[in-house]
Design a protein around this nucleic acid. Structure first.
Length: 569
RNA sequence: GCGCCUGUAGCUCAGCAGGAUAGAGCAACGGACUUCUAAUCCGUAGGCCAGGGGUUCGAAUCCCUUCAGGCGCGCCA
């Protein structure tokens, strides 16, 4: 794609002694106000080496720039060298490129032949899927799509929380108070109810805890009844999760959860032992991390049983062997940051140089009314409830604005779900979020429906144009796209590839989410200001090219953050 | 106590490999639909960028420090 910044830095290269073209490229920035130009070189840093005032440098450079096809005008303004691009060339090159690339605009083969493992969603079996789980799911899914778009081969893993002492409690509770029919009818809700009841009763009667422990031991030893119940609970949970995943448009390549690694930990423990990393402390086995300034990493409990870290280390080694990943990404809450730092370090101490390819992608905590979410106390908002409310509200809007829409239920689902995912991906992952019904059900302004609506608007114009025999074609006259709004839109469009790259480098989908809002704003301003289907064929054709390019970019961008892009709303 | 993170408009957030006058959206108020979908657009109002020091030609951005909030710190995950 045409890169004006690169062309300008090439022009400047020979004129600025002591600086590489590359360095100049990095110095170029976008002025705060478009009236000042399209690109600018601040000359303050050059002042020292050139022993001249920045103002003087800017002035001299301005007059030294030779006539060329890329820049129309160069201005010196208070120490800045401001460039006004040849809009005709810029617009023509960018739009032509986007029209040609179409659905693959922004894509790349950067990651060709490389594998990326992404561990996300990972709910705990027998717990309902609530807003808190959404974050890991939506961030992980978006990263998956971004990496895939950049040519990587992705392996999405749902590392299910399908093992642990809570299953002992659950089985004990079921044996005591549960029955098959109630569970068949109530599903996860019933399992949660049993779990909650267990905790309430255990407060009064500590013997229950012992009973739960016994059941877990039986489960570990392969007791048929324990295994059967355990598997049943998993099946029930997965069935409900699948409904949610289907709504969200999320899928996985592997569901190997914690239990998958039960029989794979022993060799790893042995390996830690052989490498002299294991140390006994207070009856437990640890890897000491004092030199690294961290608390020790617990590998075995006093009773010899394994822990979270043991499983994670085992899983990482297994994944490296199985997938030979370029990166292995873990999308979990920020509260687990230390845990990851610790066991990443253990991997390093084991001598695996791929420890540097392990990435924890943390996100902030979701709270509601100032309180943390907790399944045990019932302080949760279920994702299913949020999604269905959002879909319902979207349907109402459609009924009032476009009641004749053919597939309104499908569209309502796409936009309602889109609203929820979009809002989840809107701010930097690390920020804590306070759940609010008002916010999540607001579809005005910086929201998923706003971007989807904008996309549908573009589609609508293109459809109308096609009906009257006009199409966006490659042979448009770019000099006709000259207004402020049109030019701004072209500039925004041209930023898409670098925004994807940035989102990928930072493992931060919100960069794309926010970019899409900006792009939609620019499109809507243009749309409002300039009629597209005009009687002037040349002008119409040029504007249609612009609309077509915007449509592709909005559509591609929406897919990268996991939203659908309906053509009619 | 120690460590990590966050603090920008009434609210939710951008901007943080230093750069020109700190930007959006929501909420409020005022405008724009006989014309491509008004889930839209335009305007008004709203800020000692938590406080204080420093580095720099230049700091919301980097360093130090104080304060406030969140999270974590051995047998949960």
């Amino acid at each position: 794609m045409y890169n004006a910044k690169l062309e300008i830095s090439k022009l400047l290269g020979p004129l600025v002694p002591g600086l590489e073209t590359r360095q100049i490229y990095d110095m170029l920035e976008i002025p705060p106000n478009p009236d000042m130009g399209d690109l600018a070189l601040p000359c303050f840093k050059l002042s020292k080496t050139l022993r001249k005032s920045p103002v003087q440098i800017a002035q001299e450079l301005a007059s030294a720039i030779p006539q060329n096809e890329h820049v129309n005008k160069v201005e010196s303004l208070s120490g800045y060298l401001n460039f006004f691009l040849n809009r005709d060339k810029f617009t023509g090159s960018i739009l032509t490129y986007i029209l040609k690339a179409g659905a693959s605009f922004g894509a790349s083969d950067l990651g060709k032949g490389k594998n990326i493992v992404i561990d996300y969603s990972s709910p705990n079996i027998a717990k309902p899927f609530h807003v808190g789980h959404l974050r890991s799911t939506s961030i992980g899914n978006s990263l998956y799509r971004i990496f895939e778009f950049m040519g990587y081969n992705c392996i999405g893993i749902n590392y299910l929380g399908d093992w642990g002492t809570q299953f002992g409690k659950l089985i004990a509770a079921y044996k005591k108070w549960g029955n098959e029919q109630a569970v068949q009818e109530g599903l996860i809700n019933e399992l949660v109810a049993l779990y909650v009841k267990f905790h309430q009763e255990a407060e009064k009667d500590p013997a229950l805890d012992e009973e739960a422990r016994q059941w877990f031991v039986r489960l570990e030893q392969g007791d048929p009844e324990a295994r059967r119940l355990w598997q049943w609970f998993i099946d029930i949970s997965l069935k409900e999760y699948h409904k949610i995943y289907e709504l969200l448009g999320v899928s996985f390549d592997s569901y190997n959860g914690e239990s998958f690694f039960n029989d794979k930990m022993q060799p790893v423990i042995q390996e830690l032992q052989d490498k002299g990393l294991l140390k006994e402390s207070q009856g437990a086995m640890i890897v000491d991390l004092e030199e690294e300034g961290m608390p020790p990493c617990l590998i075995l409990k006093t009773d010899g049983s394994t822990l979270y870290a043991t499983r994670d280390i085992t899983a990482a080694i297994y994944r490296k062997k199985t997938y030979d990943f370029e990166k292995c990404i873990y999308v979990t809450g920020v509260s687990q940051s230390l845990h990851f730092k610790q066991w990443f370090k253990v991997i390093e101490k084991m001598g695996y140089d791929w420890h540097k390819d392990l990435h924890h992608v943390p996100f902030g905590t979701v709270s509601i009314g100032g309180e943390k979410l907790a399944t045990r106390t019932g302080k949760v908002v279920l994702l299913e409830e949020i999604l269905s409310k959002a879909i319902e509200k979207t349907l109402e809007t459609i009924e009032s604005k476009n009641p004749n829409l053919e597939n309104k239920h499908e569209v309502a689902q796409q936009m309602g779900v889109g609203a929820v995912i979009f809002s989840d991906l809107f701010s930097n992952r690390i920020k804590d979020v306070s759940f609010s019904w008002d916010e999540i059900l607001n579809f005005d302004g910086e929201t998923g429906p706003y971007v989807q609506y904008t996309h549908a608007r573009a589609c609508s114009v293109l459809r109308k144009a096609a009906e009257s025999g006009s199409k966006a074609a490659a042979d448009f006259d770019s000099s006709l796209i000259s207004s402020r709004e049109e030019y701004q839109l072209v500039k925004s469009l041209s930023l898409f590839p670098e925004k994807i790259k940035q989102a990928l480098d930072d493992l931060e989908p919100s960069i794309l989410t926010r970019y899409l809002v900006n792009l939609a704003q620019d499109f809507n301003r243009f749309y409002h200001e300039h009629p597209i289907l005009t009687d002037n064929p040349a002008l119409r054709s040029a504007r249609l090219a612009l609309v077509q390019a915007a449509k592709h970019t909005l559509c591609n961008g929406l897919h990268l953050i996991g939203l659908q892009a309906p053509e009619r709303v």
